[in-house]
C-alpha cells in the first residue's frame, strides 16, 4: 500500500508526457485535424457529451450489463469448476466443452445469437458470458489443481466436511487464480460488450458506450470517438487500480500468498 502513491505519481508522469506528445503532434498540423484531433477538442467533446448528451446514461447502462454478465458468469464458472473438482466425469465433460468453445470468438457467434435470440439485451449478455466463462473456468480449475495435496490431508486430519473444505481451504487456496481470472474476465467482458453494441446497435432506447462510439463514427466525429475511448480507459484504470488492487491487498497480499 505504501508504494501506491509513488506508482500513481509515475503513472501520472507518463500520462502527462504522452498527452504532451499527442498535443504537439496535433498542434503541428502534420496530420489533418480530421485524422488527429487535439486533446482540447477531445476533452471538450467529452465534456459536452457528459453534460448535454446521454453519455453518462449510456455508460451506466453498459456497466450494469457488465455487472449482470459477470455475476452470472462467476456463479456459473464456480459451480461448474467445483463440480469438476469432485467428479472425474464432470471434469472430462467440462474439459471437452472448454476445448470446443474457448477458441470461438464471441463475435463469430453473433450471427447465430442474432437469429436465435434477436438483437436484444439477452444477446449481449450471452456474448459477454461466452467471452468470460471459459477463461474463468480455466483459471479456477488451474487454481484448484495447483493446491498442494498436503492441504487435502490436513482437511482429512481435521475431519472437515466437504462444505468446510470448500470454503476454508479450496477457495482461499485458489483465490490468486480466481482474482487473475476475474481481471481477464473484466477486460474481456468490456471487449465483448463494446463489439456487441457496435454490431447490434442500440439495445435499449439509448444504447451503451459502444453505441456512443459507433454513432460518433458514422457522424464523422473523431473527437467523439476518442472521447468514448478515453471513458473506457478511465473506467479500466479505476477498476484495475482501485477495485482489484484493494481486493488483492485485503486478501492474497495480506495472507502472504502473493506480493
Amino acid at each position: 500500500m505504501i508504494s501506491l502513491p509513488d506508482k500513481f505519481k509515475q503513472r501520472l508522469g507518463w500520462i502527462l508526457l504522452l498527452a504532451l506528445i499527442w498535443q504537439l503532434i496535433a498542434a503541428s498540423h502534420f496530420f489533418s485535424e480530421l485524422i488527429f484531433p487535439g486533446l482540447d477538442k477531445i476533452i471538450l467533446t467529452l465534456f459536452t457529451s457528459l453534460t448535454n448528451g446521454n453519455l453518462l446514461k449510456q455508460l451506466i447502462f453498459s456497466l450494469i450489463i457488465i455487472a449482470q454478465g459477470l455475476t452470472l458468469t462467476v456463479i456459473l464458472a464456480l459451480s461448474l469448476s467445483i463440480l469438476a473438482y469432485f467428479s472425474e466425469l464432470a471434469a472430462s465433460l467440462l474439459e471437452t466443452l472448454t476445448a470446443l468453445a474457448h477458441p470461438l470468438p464471441g463475435i463469430a457467434l453473433m450471427p447465430l445469437i442474432l437469429i436465435w435470440f434477436g438483437a436484444g439485451k439477452t444477446a449481449i449478455l450471452l456474448v459477454i458470458i461466452h467471452s468470460v466463462l471459459w477463461p474463468l473456468i480455466l483459471n479456477l480449475r488451474a487454481g484448484f489443481n495447483a493446491m498442494p495435496s498436503i492441504y487435502n490431508l490436513i482437511a482429512q486430519n481435521y475431519c472437515l466436511t466437504k462444505l468446510e473444505f470448500l470454503f476454508k481451504i479450496l477457495f482461499p487456496a485458489a483465490l490468486p487464480y480466481f482474482i487473475s481470472g476475474l481481471k481477464i474476465s473484466w477486460a474481456r467482458s468490456w471487449r465483448a460488450l463494446i463489439s456487441a453494441e457496435m454490431l447490434f446497435g442500440a439495445i435499449n432506447s439509448l444504447g451503451g458506450i459502444g453505441w456512443y462510439i459507433f454513432q460518433r463514427r458514422v457522424f464523422f466525429d473523431l473527437p467523439g470517438v476518442f472521447a468514448g475511448l478515453v471513458v473506457i480507459i478511465l473506467i479500466g484504470i479505476i477498476v484495475e487500480d482501485f477495485i482489484f488492487a484493494r481486493l488483492e491487498a485485503k486478501t492474497v497480499q495480506k495472507w502472504g500468498m502473493s506480493k
Binding site: I115, G118, G120, F200, A202, S205, L206
Partner: peptide, 21 residues
C-alpha cells in the same frame, strides 16, 4: 431514432423474412 437497429441490407432482409425482431 430510439427504435433503430443498425443492420446491413442482407441481414435486415433475413431478419424481416424470419419475422421477428
Amino acid at each position: 431514432d430510439n427504435q433503430l437497429l443498425t443492420m446491413s441490407h442482407p441481414d435486415a432482409m433475413n431478419a424481416l423474412l424470419a419475422g421477428h425482431e
